[in-house]
Design a protein around this nucleic acid. Structure first.
Lengths: 213, 213
DNA sequence: CTTTACATACCGGCGTGTATGTATATTTTC
DNA sequence: GAAAATATACATACACGCCGGTATGTAAAG
């Protein structure tokens, strides 16, 4: 072939990124070759090198396309000014798990970031990006747990900072574990129960004498 | 050099395995070359190919050296015949986290298995092994939660099977998350609180009328 | 003298990056 | 508005290095 129209070129670029996702999901980043990506996308390495500086640049663009539900979390935090913070947290967590179960694109990117050898070797470019996202998530979680404490729904024995870390790890573990064996559990259906058991543990126990307030 | 004594040879073998751990921890499995391992171990690839059939064989031997605390979990399950199952679970979890924080060897292997691209590409050999361990862990957890249910300490609304899965994911998330940023939290010190918040959520609430039994 | 425990040398393959070819879209010129 | 010039969007070909595997050398242990 030869030169395509501008729209065609953009489609090619997107196809390359899609192919990269698919191949990397199977093989992991270090084992993925530009040949495989090209074959999957139906182009040669020439096309890849035209659209991207090098392999690193391609990976960077691929990760950049992934949108994490950070906005949802922030929205939940904002709503929690007037609503039950722990309830917002449960709803957010449920939504995240359901999205993982039902959005194949999101699932692929999560698999790559969790099991794709992202932070080994010298892939410093997007680990900085992901680190920032993680840090933002943690901050939002801390704020939510602080609101819960102020609302009196958080068990006073629990440190909001630690709770945020623990909750984040719980979600990461659920993501990671489920992605290894997606068929073992109907995640969308169990999401509510899974989140519930955890949040039960951090919620203050109203031992009768709390109804007065 | 030339031929060493039998003990020397064993030491060389161990050095190669140690080096493999160290390099793979940094680079991940697919990006690790036998040259790097040899350099790290102070030998050439010749030595590696003498002790191991090929790369896969070396990796297999490396993973085989790692002992997972499956026995501890089974012991906890056995003790739970006469003790509080949820308490056994908490103690086991704490021990596991503390070991992760304090045993560098265990830490390395966990990092490799969690972030080393183990199950991508064609490393079928030891994913079978790890799959079996995981399955055993899950079974032991289910038994423990069932005991807790029988003992009346488990919230009756919670399904033991789901709880086992959820608890396993929680631990995996804690491992995975902490290994990414070990300095952010003093794991050994927080272990108790971290486990406590979770197990609080699954424990039956004795709303007064449970003291009779 | 044979076996062991490696080191060294060699080979085929593959992957990255780059240089070059080329047909077409787009722009420029008249 | 058609032809010429040029930039675009790739495909093809090439150079280079490195990696895994194997074949061979070799000095000391047994």
């Amino acid at each position: 072939m030869a030169r395509k129209t501008k729209a065609d070129a953009l489609a090619t670029r997107a196809a390359i990124l899609d192919a990269a996702e698919a191949v990397i999901e199977r093989e992991g980043i270090p084992a993925t070759t530009l040949n495989q990506i090209g074959r999957e996308a139906g182009v040669t390495r020439g096309a890849i090198y035209w659209h991207f500086k090098d392999k690193e640049d391609l990976l960077d663009a691929m990760v950049a396309r992934a949108a994490f539900p950070l906005d949802d979390l922030r929205a939940a935090d904002a709503r929690a000014e007037t609503t039950d913070a722990l309830d917002e947290l449960r709803q957010f967590g449920e939504q995240a798990l359901i999205r993982l179960a039902e959005d194949p694109h999101y699932r692929r990117v999560c698999r790559i970031l969790l099991h794709g050898c992202v932070r080994l070797g010298r892939h410093h470019l997007f680990i900085a990006e992901e680190e920032a996202v993680k840090s933002n998530i943690h901050d939002a979680l801390v704020r939510l747990f602080q609101k819960a404490r102020d609302q009196g729904t958080l068990d006073p024995a629990i440190n909001p900072e630690l709770a945020a870390w623990s909750f984040g790890s719980y979600m990461r573990g659920l993501y990671s574990d489920w992605l290894l064996a997606p068929d073992r559990i109907d995640l969308a259906q169990s999401a509510s129960a899974i989140l519930g058991t955890y949040l039960n543990g951090v919620r203050a126990r109203d031992d009768g004498n709390d109804a007065a307030r």
